[in-house]
Design a protein around this nucleic acid. Structure first.
Lengths: 341, 341
DNA sequence: AGCGCGATTGTAAACGATTTCAAACCCCTT
DNA sequence: AAGGGGTTTGAAATCGTTTACAATCGCGCT
């Protein structure tokens, strides 16, 4: 039992397919009587226009592509939800891909987008440097970068204020009296890694504290990377009284590492994470973090893409959304300085 | 700059479009010389076959639809990842929709799937009762139910062993010596809600304990629902020494409620959750839960759908994946019975 | 040499919608 | 009554593939 086509509807209503199409698209020049007739036939057959055919003919689809690194990361989860809500509002569907930060996989998926002839793509690129995305631009498929910048003059972006957020986190620690602050960070191949490190360094410099390379660890953005880096820092740099961890999954690992070392938070060590999570309040002590407006990030990115689809020639827009320092229980003055803050 | 078409390739290679198509589809009867020629042209033009046209012609697409309630639920997050990995392995893309447990939204999205002419749909239905999914079956679009059964003789399903899991959880509590066990559960409109309650009741009956309706609360599957239900139970039913919470988000809320009441886990009250989460070990005490094989659930569902696409006539298959009781620190013998277990 | 038969290639018709163009029609004016 | 303007309708082309069918080619066999 195949789907009915516009021909079936036309036959049923005793008109031509052209008329059916006109009714469907609210085109003028259809008499009320015929319109009613056609609508009746549509309802009777439970007819749905075939989007594939529409797409082929119209050369534009109501589908957006979405390439992120991993849907299992709660950050992207919220972003995706924001995108989806805006997209569906506007009648667009979403094709989802996980690149796992692998540039080859990303390239593959970009080609999928091309083949699917999506209207536009929202991309959290695995790498700033190699913009496979330009393949898309070359076919007039607009791209919006999310979470990570892409080196291209023609790509809108929607990012969190990473540097400022990181700076806020570290400033908070400095204000509490910490002077030896460790940093567990992301690879420097993508915007968040680059800018959060900058923020860490800026906060130190603004308070005349030295930036000590040995107190900085870079690892992949997973729980294990956070764990190993934190453990290593705690062992190698015993002066450290506070830790800034640049990513939510890494924070999980870092907290485990701290527990393994038998240290107590915040008495022995203060911890600030980046990106809030629903369970931050359940930890003992609850976690101090820099919250990103994740859902809004997604909304804004989708809105930006839809804007650009409507008006392709407008100038490129870069949006930065502010972060919020949420002080909970995992930060306090370092031991012996309880009154200095 | 439009995408090159098979005509462009044909012209470039000095052959007909039919030959290009044959090369593309590894069809027989193409001389090696011509094949090389065509491949060269394809590479030169960076040609990608237009899937829209392929789809229209072939009347089958390499796209799967996925309708879940909410991607922000960590359970679905893992499920989606499992689906996506299997789907992309087989060359399929994924169209994602969030129904928010709203049957109307679900119906809308099912129509989107129909219009998109997806090859098949994986559906976590908002309701067992109203199978909008039959609209899809009527058009020969196969459906696989995930997490929740659908009342239809023709729909494969992939579910967790909800009843057994719940029974294991409650049995664990009973074995520790608890006799007054509260249940914070999901609505009875969907499989997990129905079966987990069954499991709770079965465990009690198997141990000759009464099933007391007043110790059971049903609420929506969000954090707030869990919080309010748990709080209510703690106040109304002071005999309760253990709580079984049927969903991960509700568990979050329940833990908060317990903290608000100033109770200590597990001394004053034991807690078992359903569905493991990465941060379960970070809680103080770490959370005892029933772990579902979420990622495998997704994998199996996708595999099932691909199987059915390959062979539409095979009999319907219902897959149940086992759960695992993970005992951590949030459960112990009730006060005053420390040695009875 | 002529015939026949694969193997190879091309031509043209689908797929289901939109859209251009022209035909048909209505009603009004002169 | 004929012509003209505007509205309504339909026929046919189009989008980029796949595929049934026809045409061509080359080669071996008699």
């Amino acid at each position: 039992m195949d789907s009915p086509t516009s021909h079936d509807v036309a036959k049923q209503a005793g008109v031509s397919v052209a008329t059916v199409s006109r009714v469907l698209n609210d085109a003028p020049h259809v008499s009320p009587a015929v319109r009613r007739q056609v609508l009746r036939a549509i309802r009777k057959l439970n007819y749905q226009p075939n989007r594939t055919a529409q797409r082929l003919r119209a050369k534009q689809s109501k589908v957006l592509g979405l390439i992120i690194s991993d849907i299992q990361n709660p950050f992207f989860t919220a972003v995706v939800r924001g995108i989806e809500d805006v997209a569906h509002q506007a009648g667009y569907s979403l094709v989802l891909c996980n690149s796992d930060e692998d540039p080859d996989k990303e390239k593959l998926y970009i080609n999928v987008m091309r083949a699917e002839a999506v209207a536009g793509v929202i991309l959290a690129s695995a790498s700033e440097a190699k913009p496979h995305a330009s393949d898309l631009l070359a076919q007039n498929i607009p791209v919006v970068a999310i979470d990570r910048q892409i080196k291209s003059r023609r790509i809108d972006s929607v990012l969190a204020a990473n540097e400022q957020g990181a700076c806020d986190a570290v400033t908070h620690l400095i204000n509490l009296g910490h002077t030896c602050i460790g940093y567990v960070g992301l690879p420097l191949t993508r915007t968040p890694g680059i800018e959060r490190l900058k923020g860490y360094e800026r906060a130190l410099r603004e308070h005349k504290l030295p930036v000590v390379r040995a107190r900085i660890r870079i690892a992949n953005a997973k729980q294990l990377g956070g764990h190993d880096s934190a453990l290593d820092l705690l062992v190698q740099q015993p002066c450290i009284t506070a830790l800034f961890v640049a990513n939510n999954l890494m924070t999980l690992g870092a907290l485990n590492a701290i527990r393994e070392r038998g240290l107590e938070i915040p008495r022995d060590i203060s911890v600030v994470g980046f990106d809030d999570v629903p369970w931050a309040t359940l930890l003992q002590p609850p976690l101090t973090t820099i919250a990103q407006p994740t859902y809004e990030l997604g909304q804004k990115a989708a809105a930006r893409l839809l804007e650009r689809l409507k008006n392709p020639e407008q100038p490129v827009v870069h949006t930065h959304l502010g972060t919020t320092l949420i002080v909970r229980g995992s930060t306090s003055a370092p031991r012996g300085k309880e009154n200095s803050a």
